[in-house]
Simulated scan of single mutants.
Amino acid sequence: MLPFLALLMLYHTWPVIFGTYLAFTKYNIISPPEFVGLDNFRELIKDQQFWSGVVNSLKYLLVVPFIQLLSIGVAMLVNRPLKGIGFFRTAYYVPVVTSFAVVGLIWTWMYQQSGPVNFVLMHLGLMQRDSSLLNNPGSALYAVMFVTLWKGIGYYMVLYLAGLQSIGRELEEAAVIDGATRWQVFVNITLPGLRPTILVCSLMSTISAVKVFEEIFVMTQGGPVGSTYTALFFNYAKAFQDFRYGYAAAAGIVVAVISLVFGLINFKMTRGGRVDG
């Protein structure tokens, strides 16, 4: 285990420790860190740009229930013993293994004013004027959310598929023999059996939503007019654009605490993943 533990210390534990230390310093990578105590956190409390980013990150949590429900639905579809089902499982998973740089560029093109998304929305009467969804402050964040939803379904589908296959088939068959409908089987057998998986998936999805960055960096850079400026993008901008590493580290700690709080709420809502007897 020593090689793994060494890599874990080098790339995970040490950055966390050093980043926590930097949060209490003024550091611009040129001069040595200067200890400033809680000054960075006091400044964060008054920083409207940071709190605007936190609000956008919390809005991103709207994607969590949709991605979980759709993932469960897709997992149930591909859990059937049909001929060629392996092809569909692979097809749903392809977006997961595709680089987000590629995914972001493709969807940015699709969202363009002359792109296919606008064409479909205009012909369905859902859009009154031809404009890019990513250039509209009212729709940009939700357009990026949809990309996260599209890309993430396959990942959680695999986890839910594993959870479905761990549920004894004889339980469902016995319920059907007793006269239970498909909906009753799902509510009383499938859903309780999936509860531990739902806990893990919803927890991971919640933390990922609060810490969203790749999508914003590739597709919008926080625009337009700051409508997609998230908390983690604030960290990136302060560290690698303004070179205020101590201030960025302090913001990172606050984001981590927010993620922990929502993770605990998520854990509480799913009752710790216990399956009722």
Rank of each mutant, 00 (worst) to 15 (best):
V16A: 05
L44I: 13
Q49S: 10
L22S: 00
N40T: 04
V55P: 08
W51M: 09
L22N: 00
D39C: 09
R42T: 11
G53K: 04
G19C: 04
T20Q: 02
S31W: 14
I45A: 10
G53E: 05
S57K: 10
Q49D: 09
N56Y: 09
K46I: 14
Y21H: 04
P32F: 11
F18Y: 03
V16F: 06
A23N: 01
V16K: 01
I30F: 08
D47F: 12
F18T: 00
V54H: 13
V36D: 05
S31V: 04
Y21W: 06
I45W: 09
G37H: 13
L22D: 00
I29L: 12
N28Y: 13
V16S: 02
F41I: 13
F18E: 00
R42M: 08
T25Q: 04
W14I: 01
D39Y: 08
P33C: 09
I30G: 05
W51K: 07
D39M: 14
G53Y: 03
F24C: 05
Q48A: 15
V55K: 11
Y21E: 02
V55Y: 14
Y21F: 11
V54Q: 14
P32M: 09
N28I: 04
S31N: 08
G37R: 13
I45H: 03
V16Q: 01
T25W: 08
Y27D: 04
I29M: 10
Q48C: 09
I30K: 07
V54L: 09
D47V: 11
W51V: 07
I45Y: 06
S52K: 07
I45F: 12
F24A: 05
R42K: 10
N28A: 06
R42C: 13
W14H: 01
V55Q: 15
S31D: 11
P15N: 02
L22K: 01
S57F: 04
S31M: 13
G53Q: 04
S31R: 05
Q49M: 12
V16I: 09
F18P: 00
V54M: 15
N56E: 05
I17Y: 00
F18S: 00
G19K: 01
S57D: 12
Q49Y: 15
F50W: 04
I29A: 12
Q49L: 13
L44P: 01
F24K: 02
F18I: 02
N28M: 10
V55F: 12
E43C: 12
N28P: 11
I29D: 14
S52T: 11
K26Y: 15
S31T: 14
V36W: 10
K46G: 11
R42N: 07
L38W: 06
I29C: 09
V54K: 10
S57R: 07
V36S: 03
